[in-house]
Nucleic acid binder design. Structure first.
Lengths: 231, 231
DNA sequence: CTAATATATGGTCATTTTGACTATAAGTAA
DNA sequence: TTACTTATAGTCAAAATGACCATATATTAG
């Protein structure tokens, strides 16, 4: 056995970056942090950082996201490793990118660690990003568009109880398209994924819609067996 | 600028592993190599090795696969990075896994570099593998099953000219299921992905089938727009 | 109170797609 | 000639889709 480094030692050849999607008022957002120190201080970037010897790559992603933004306990999935030899300016760093979908309303952003700020940006109005982060983001967005059509994800972006129109607007925002209301509902009804909360929307200036929530059991089954969410 | 290592220097925290699928006589195979040196000499493993400072991770995968097995110029896609801190015995190594689909008949296996042997194994009859390679393989197989239903891949596993039954058997082998012959052909016909070679199968002891090849243009379009290969 | 208007929710219908079968054709081998 | 194998074409009821239309229920302006 070699003389191993302390578990907290940073592996300087490997980093993490997270593409976090949020959804609010029919708009698809991306979570960015402003670097408070280091070679990119003052610039906007995907939340990320260094992996240490003692943790798994997955755990590093969770830890970094939480310490930079306050977000915890979310569905965080690996996207891809980005390994161009020149992607990082001063030396050779491979980054493992993750992505997640969250309901913005559930998380107060708390910038911390090396981040001086953390904010949501509309995916259609982003500031310049450091390194190859625009490429990573772009890859993540394409992945999201693809995945949302083949798996019942995307639901993490909504509140626990939501209306069918909210769900439809989410799909429209991700896929950048218009969907037929009636057909959309019929489709959803058929996959028996939604449970009627027997409760109506409040404080809206029009007829209140029924609220629904997800049936976790059906959700898991659909993810396992592979579904086709033809839209 | 720091004093950078020579481009050929190995990054000892990062490796590559490849899950290569082959198809022959209706059987789905995996390509393995026997380690000829190092801590796992004599044992079977996924083809892989170390990344160097000067190359991209993608290039490293191509280089390693070629030097270990002789295979080159194939569709090689990143699968996932495996980053458990204890996956490698002596120190902390993260590996980036790739996968590819090839037509076995097109490649003579030439073990080289650190491999003393290279062989195809039926996916249902594998030897014990080193480290976490069985997990990587398993993940790759699940990925293949999923992907084959949503993208027109899988075609790389066949000869340039093939019969409809060969194509069907490929899908049956990957998905571990039986498909209806007539309905399978109807589906294929509708997506206009196949070009009739106007040429028949030879040397078979029954009625010869028509040979087909892929329409590269339609293929590319389908991959880009996202298709549903409902089977 | 009434009308305008916004969204909710349910239904119609022609067309397309699916899944389960059946039937016939064209080769080889005994 | 017959048995056997695979190729290829077609049928048909059931299910799914896409483009609409109709009505219900709420708020707000006048």
């Amino acid at each position: 056995m070699e003389n191993l480094p302390h578990p907290d030692t940073i592996i300087d050849a490997l980093s993490i970056d997270c593409v976090i999607f949020g959804f609010k008022d029919g708009r698809l957002d991306i979570l960015l942090v402003k670097h408070g120190e280091g070679i990119s201080a003052g610039k906007w970037a995907l939340p990320g950082g260094w992996i240490t010897y003692g943790e798994s790559v997955d755990d590093a992603a969770k830890r970094l996201l939480n310490s930079l933004t306050g977000i915890r306990d979310i569905y965080l999935e690996q996207l891809k490793a980005f390994g161009d030899p020149n992607r990082y300016p001063s030396r050779r760093v491979v980054t493992v990118a993750y992505y997640a979908l969250v309901n913005e309303e559930n998380y107060a952003l708390i910038p911390g660690f090396t981040a001086s700020d953390a904010q949501w940006f509309s995916i259609h109005d982003l500031p310049p990003l450091i390194y190859d982060h625009d490429q990573i983001l772009d890859y993540g967005y394409r992945q999201l568009k693809h995945k949302v059509r083949h798996e019942p994800i995307g639901f993490n972006l909504l509140p626990a109880k939501f209306t069918l129109l909210q769900l439809q607007e989410l799909y429209e925002a991700i896929l950048e398209t218009k969907l037929d209301k009636s057909n959309f509902r019929r489709k959803l009804a058929k996959m028996k994924l939604l449970i009627d909360c027997k409760e109506k929307q409040k404080d809206v200036s029009h007829r209140a819609a029924e609220l629904y929530k997800f049936d976790k059991r059906v959700y898991v089954t659909l993810r396992k067996n592979g579904m086709v969410f033809g839209l």
